[in-house]
Simulated scan of single mutants.
Amino acid sequence: MMPLWSRAQQQDFRSRVRGCLLGGAIGDALGGGIEFEQLEQIRAVHGEAGVAGYVPAYGRRGAITDDTQMTLFTVDGLIRSHISRDSGAWHPPSDVHRAYLRWYATQQDWGPDERRKDLGWLGREEWLYARRAPGQACLSGLAGTENGPLPTVEEPRNPGSKGCGTVMRAAPFGLLTAWDPALVFQLAVECSVLTHGHPTGYLSAGAFAVIVHAVARGGTLEEGVHLALALLSERTGHEETTAALRAALDAVRAGAPSPERVEELGEGWVAEEALAIGLYCALVAEDVRSGLLLAVNHSGDSDSTGSICGNLLGALHGETALPPDLLAELEGRGTVLELADDLVLELLHGPELHGTEAWSTRYPVAATG
């Protein structure tokens, strides 16, 4: 449970949590329709400035992808992990792993299996049972792991993978603002190796979570980056992630923002590049809209870089800074808001909710840790 906060502090925290999750979803949806297009193609179709809003993807405007899907299930796992503390069998990576297995089921099944008692309300949201170009490392990392030993940093899944799928789902760890930053970093790492075992992959996720954590606490992006760099320096295999963060900081000082400058940081298909691009665009953003559009208009993994940028800007500025027209068309906005508010309720008022029928039905906890 959080320390006792004033009402204003609680409202600020709620705004940042909502902003982080909604901002990430908006960035995801902005990039989803151009994810596999080169910058030249984007400009040829949408003009020199690129896309200025949603373009149709997956049969509609404002469609989210696997980035937001997995982020939502990360939140679901974190809520259940806090509930499970009551049983004395507390191991957050196990709860997050079970949540990712519920997401994995959405990628295999036509709809929710009502025979399953563990789905909770999120797992019964039929609109989430849509395949939106999920990352192969996420799928292969989770396949067949229901009853096996939990992957660890020492024995991770997909030890050679550092795809951006490890970063784009990691923002919720940073919303645990009562935790020490080093513990947030470690939790993000331990949940990343469930699918991605390359040090650059899981350390990039840890760094991203720490930056979100810093701004969710009211700090600046720069403070978060420097804290992440300090924590990275203590880890074996940090060099690529450290270099990517430093490249993002250097790009801020290199001149006016542009898609070409974004592309100097990479394309975003791998973890450290996605982190660098999302961070750079957040650092130079004049407002949320401009930052998000910069983050998606490039030749690369536009939905993931947009999502990362949106998570950061939303946590930094809160939900009221998000563009209202983009919010209005966002797929699943009600679900994202409901889950964000549930996370806030759990973190602020968990003991008052635990054991109630409503909360236990929404978030059933496994009998064993």
Results as ranks from 00 to 15, higher is better:
T320K: 12
A25Y: 04
P151M: 08
G268T: 08
L183D: 15
E154W: 02
S84Q: 12
S94M: 11
P56S: 13
C191W: 05
F73E: 00
T145F: 02
A244V: 13
G24I: 06
W359A: 01
G32V: 01
R16K: 15
D86P: 00
A99M: 05
E264Y: 05
E329R: 15
D28V: 07
V336H: 05
P112V: 02
L231K: 01
E155P: 00
S233C: 12
S192C: 15
T335M: 13
S84Y: 00
K162D: 04
L187Y: 07
A244P: 06
D303A: 11
T74S: 12
R61M: 10
Y280R: 06
L72P: 02
E40P: 03
W110T: 14
T68K: 01
Y58H: 12
P324Y: 04
A216M: 13
E338A: 15
G355M: 14
L345V: 04
F173A: 12
H298M: 12
G224N: 01
A285S: 05
L353K: 09
L275W: 08
T368E: 15
V336K: 05
R102T: 05
Q186M: 07
T68F: 09
A205H: 10
E267I: 04
L347F: 08
L275E: 07
D303N: 11
F173N: 08
P323S: 08
I79V: 15
E319Q: 04
H46N: 12
A282H: 03
Q69T: 00
L176H: 10
V344F: 13
S307W: 01
G31Q: 08
E352T: 04
T242I: 00
G141N: 05
D250T: 12
T220W: 12
E331V: 06
R169I: 04
R157L: 02
L279P: 01
G268P: 02
L345E: 14
T145N: 00
V51Y: 07
A295D: 01
R7L: 14
A89W: 02
L313E: 04
G160K: 14
G268K: 04
T166I: 13
L39A: 09
A230W: 02
L322W: 04
Q11W: 03
A340N: 03
R246V: 10
H226I: 08
S161M: 06
N158H: 09
E338F: 06
R131Y: 12
A328C: 02
A29K: 07
V189D: 03
A29E: 10
G165C: 09
Y58A: 09
T152W: 02
A214D: 10
V51C: 06
D303P: 02
W127I: 03
S94R: 12
V189A: 13
G53D: 14
S15F: 09
C309P: 01
D86Y: 13
L322A: 11
P324T: 10
G32P: 00
R85M: 13
G135L: 03
V75I: 14
L326F: 10
H354Q: 09
A244F: 11
G148H: 09
E264A: 15
S299N: 03
L21H: 08
Y104A: 10
G77E: 03
A243Q: 11
L292Y: 05
